[in-house]
Design a protein around this nucleic acid. Structure first.
Lengths: 141, 141
DNA sequence: CTTGATAAGTACGATATCGTACTATATGAT
DNA sequence: ATCATATAGTACGATATCGTACTTATCAAG
C-alpha cells in the first residue's frame, strides 16, 4: 500500500514537472490546476470550496485566485447567497488559457501512448478512482 | 491519458496531506520524502543526485538538506571522489524519524485496506511502475 | 601545464505558501 | 431580538521555493 502511494507520488511529481514546462512564464501549476478544476467541475464555486477540494489553506487559495484574477482568467464576484463570501467565475480568457495549455501538452502525452498502451491505462482508472474516493473520505472519517 | 494523470495527481495530493498530518511540527513532506528516498535507495548520494531524482532545483534541495542536517537527521560530508561535491549520509536519528513517521501513518493506511483490497492494489502496481519509467525517460528523451 | 567548458554547491533576492490574528456575516439557541 | 458560536475572506509575518549569479573544482583538448 505504501509502495502504491509512493509510486503514485513519484508519477504525480514527474507529470507536474512536465506540465510546468508547458506553461507560459508567470503561470504556475497551481494556477492551471485551479482553472482546470473550474472547467471540469463548473465555475461558481466559492474560494473555500476550492481550498477544500485541493486540501490547501484558504490563504493559499486566496493568493492563487488573486493571481488569476489580476491576469483576467477568472472573476471574483460577491456571493448572492452569502454576504461573507465570493464566487469564482471563469472568463473566456481563462477557458482559452486552459485549453491552450492542454493542447501544448498533448503531443508529449500522445507520444507515450504507443509504449504504454491505452487499454492498460483504461484498466487501472477505476481502481484509481476508488482509491481517490477512499482517501477523500478518510480525511473526515 | 489526461484523466489518468489527473487522477494520479489528486491521489498524490490527498496522500501528501495525510502524510503531512502525521509529521511533527517543523518537519515538512519534503524532509520526509528526502529521508525516505535515502533509506530506500541507500545513502551516500550527492545533493545533485537527489535534486534530479525529485525534479527540483538544486537550490531547493540544498535548503531541504540544510534543514535536515541542522536537526541532525542527515550528515553532509565532502565527496572524496569529487572536490566540488558533498555526500548525504543518514544518521541513526534520521532512520528512526522516518520509521516513526511510517509507524504513525500505518493505522490510517491499514484502515483503508479492507475497503480497497490488497489484490487490487497489487494488480495495478506494475502498470504504475511502467508509467513512472516512461515519464522518467520522457524528460531527457 | 594551460585553457575553456561544464558541473556542484552557495548567496541572495523575488515570489509562493501557510499559520495566526482579524473583520464581517451567518446561524442557532434562548 | 439578542447573544454566542462558527464560517468566508483578508492582512501580515515567517518560512519555503526557485531563478540568477557566483565560486570552486573537474575534465577534455591542445
Amino acid at each position: 500500500m505504501f509502495e502504491l502511494l509512493n509510486e503514485v507520488g513519484i508519477i504525480a511529481q514527474l507529470s507536474r514537472a512536465m506540465l510546468e514546462s508547458h506553461l507560459d512564464e508567470g503561470l504556475t501549476v497551481h494556477h492551471f490546476t485551479a482553472l482546470n478544476h473550474l472547467v471540469r467541475l463548473g465555475d461558481g464555486k466559492t474560494p473555500m470550496d476550492m481550498a477544500r477540494a485541493f486540501q490547501v489553506p484558504k490563504t493559499s487559495m486566496s493568493h492563487t485566485l488573486a493571481g488569476l484574477e489580476k491576469r483576467g482568467f477568472i472573476q471574483l464576484v460577491p456571493n448572492p447567497a452569502d454576504g461573507r463570501g465570493k464566487l469564482v467565475l471563469l472568463t473566456d480568457a481563462g477557458r482559452e488559457l486552459r485549453e491552450r495549455a492542454i493542447q501544448s501538452l498533448t503531443p508529449q502525452i500522445a507520444q507515450m501512448i504507443p509504449q504504454f498502451g491505452l487499454d492498460e491505462a483504461r484498466s487501472i482508472l477505476p481502481t484509481l478512482r476508488k482509491l481517490r474516493a477512499l482517501l477523500d473520505g478518510a480525511r473526515d472519517g
